[in-house]
Simulated scan of single mutants.
Amino acid sequence: MTCKEQDRGASKIIYYPCLIAEVLSPGTEAIERGKKFQNYRRISTLKKYILINAQQMIVECFRLNQNGI
């Protein structure tokens, strides 16, 4: 999800996401929790990162704190 006007017409790539949600699978969970999350934290516009575990019906939401971390 984007919060920037620059992304409104985007059809394939959003450059200024404020929310990213991932559905976890056993084969990709380590990547999404590790390297992807590390890279996503570098996106200045990102406010929330949501991980959805469909197998265990668990949703985790990571959001920036007051210090931007």
Results as ranks from 00 to 15, higher is better:
Met1Gln: 06
Met1Tyr: 09
Met1His: 06
Thr2Arg: 03
Thr2Pro: 12
Cys3Asp: 15
Cys3Asn: 15
Glu5His: 09
Gln6Cys: 07
Asp7His: 06
Arg8Val: 09
Arg8Cys: 08
Gly9Gln: 14
Gly9Trp: 08
Ala10His: 02
Ser11Cys: 04
Ile13Asn: 14
Ile13Tyr: 15
Tyr15His: 13
Tyr15Met: 12
Tyr16Arg: 06
Tyr16Gly: 01
Tyr16Asn: 15
Tyr16Ile: 08
Pro17Thr: 10
Pro17Ala: 10
Cys18His: 01
Leu19Met: 10
Leu19Phe: 07
Leu19Cys: 09
Ile20Tyr: 04
Ile20Gly: 02
Ile20Phe: 04
Ile20Cys: 01
Ala21Arg: 05
Ala21Leu: 07
Ala21Cys: 08
Glu22Cys: 02
Glu22Ala: 06
Val23Pro: 03
Leu24Trp: 08
Pro26Asp: 14
Pro26Val: 07
Gly27Arg: 06
Gly27Tyr: 10
Gly27Gln: 15
Thr28Ala: 10
Thr28Ile: 06
Thr28Gly: 05
Glu29Tyr: 11
Ala30Ile: 01
Ile31Trp: 08
Ile31Ala: 11
Ile31Leu: 12
Arg33Asp: 03
Arg33His: 10
Arg33Gly: 09
Gly34Ser: 11
Lys35Gly: 00
Lys36Gln: 09
Lys36Asn: 03
Lys36Glu: 08
Phe37Asn: 00
Phe37Arg: 11
Gln38Met: 11
Gln38Ser: 11
Gln38Asp: 10
Tyr40Arg: 03
Tyr40Phe: 10
Arg41Ile: 03
Arg42Asp: 06
Arg42Gln: 13
Ser44Phe: 07
Ser44Thr: 14
Thr45Tyr: 00
Thr45Met: 00
Lys48Pro: 03
Lys48His: 13
Tyr49Glu: 07
Tyr49Pro: 05
Ile50Pro: 02
Ile50Thr: 13
Leu51Lys: 13
Leu51Gln: 15
Leu51Gly: 02
Leu51Tyr: 08
Ala54Phe: 03
Ala54Ser: 14
Gln55Ile: 00
Gln55Met: 02
Gln56Leu: 04
Gln56Ala: 11
Met57His: 15
Met57Glu: 13
Ile58Arg: 12
Ile58Trp: 02
Ile58Leu: 07
Val59Arg: 12
Val59Ala: 10
Val59Tyr: 03
Glu60Met: 04
Cys61Gln: 14
Phe62Ser: 00
Phe62Val: 04
Arg63Pro: 05
Leu64Arg: 08
Leu64Asp: 07
Leu64Ile: 15
Asn65His: 02
Asn65Phe: 06
Asn65Met: 01
Asn65Pro: 05
Gln66Glu: 15
Gln66Leu: 11
Gln66His: 06
Asn67His: 11
Gly68Trp: 05
Gly68Pro: 04
Ile69Ala: 08
Ile69Pro: 04
Ile69His: 01
